[in-house]
Amino acid sequence: MDVFMKGLSKAKEGVVAAAEKTKQGVAEAAGKTKEGVLYVGSKTKEGVVHGVATVAEKTKEQVTNVGGAVVTGVTAVAQKTVEGAGSIAAATGFVKKDQLGKNEEGAPQEGILEDMPVDPDNEAYEMPSEEGYQDYEPEA
């Protein structure tokens, strides 16, 4: 019985440690998101679009440190934060509304985080759909 109880105690310690790591990862992701939003706020009209992409990228980098179902929630929060940063930029006159959601080359930025393969159960990952990809044929 002692062996059984000791095993359960060790398992509990492992769960607590994993929860603490997840909590730490979420806190880091939130900190990076805040950094990115402050970065966007300090940019001029020309830099705002690039700044919004930076927020998304920093958040995406930190999301990889967070495991399990938390990833889905962090990704949703990050996307809403990026959308909010863009709205703030438009409201303050840093950028025109028609410039939001495009990178410096004018290509749409939507789907940055949505296409990231995420499995809350950590069982399997699927690649994003290939609808947006084109076949590449090298020139002879």
Rank of each mutant, 00 (worst) to 15 (best):
K23D: 00
V55H: 02
V49E: 07
E110S: 03
A27H: 12
V70T: 05
V66Y: 15
V55D: 01
K96C: 12
T92E: 06
A30E: 00
N122E: 02
G132W: 11
E28P: 01
V63W: 11
D98A: 14
E28D: 11
G36C: 04
L8G: 00
M5D: 00
A27W: 08
V95H: 12
D119P: 09
G67H: 11
K10A: 10
A69P: 04
P120D: 13
E35F: 09
P138G: 12
E46D: 05
G101K: 15
D121K: 12
Y39L: 02
K97D: 14
V55A: 09
I88A: 05
A78N: 03
G36L: 02
E20G: 05
L100S: 11
V49C: 08
V48M: 09
H50W: 14
G47S: 15
E35P: 02
Y39S: 10
A11I: 14
T59R: 01
G73F: 15
G36K: 13
E139D: 07
M5I: 00
E105H: 13
D115L: 08
E110I: 10
G51V: 14
G68S: 11
A17K: 09
L38G: 08
S129I: 03
D121H: 12
E131S: 11
K97R: 09
K10W: 06
P128E: 12
A27D: 03
K58P: 00
L38H: 07
T92K: 09
T75M: 15
I112Y: 07
D121E: 05
K80V: 03
V40M: 08
A124G: 08
V55P: 01
V71N: 04
E20D: 06
A18H: 03
N65W: 12
V82I: 13
V74G: 03
G41Y: 10
V37S: 01
V95Y: 08
D119A: 03
T44I: 04
V3I: 07
K96E: 11
L100E: 10
N65L: 12
Y125G: 10
I112L: 12
A56G: 03
Y133K: 03
P138E: 09
A89T: 09
T33Q: 00
G93K: 06
K80M: 10
A30S: 01
D119M: 04
N65V: 11
S87Y: 13
E130T: 07
T72M: 13
D98I: 15
A91N: 07
G41V: 05
A107N: 11
P120Y: 12
E46T: 15
G31S: 13
V55Y: 02
V55K: 01
V63I: 09
E61K: 06
P138V: 14
V3F: 15
E61A: 13
E126G: 05
N65S: 01
G51L: 11
K21V: 08
M1S: 00
V77L: 09
P120S: 09
L38T: 09
K6Y: 07
G67P: 06
G47H: 14
Q99E: 12
Y133A: 11
E83T: 13
K34Q: 03
T81K: 05
E137P: 07
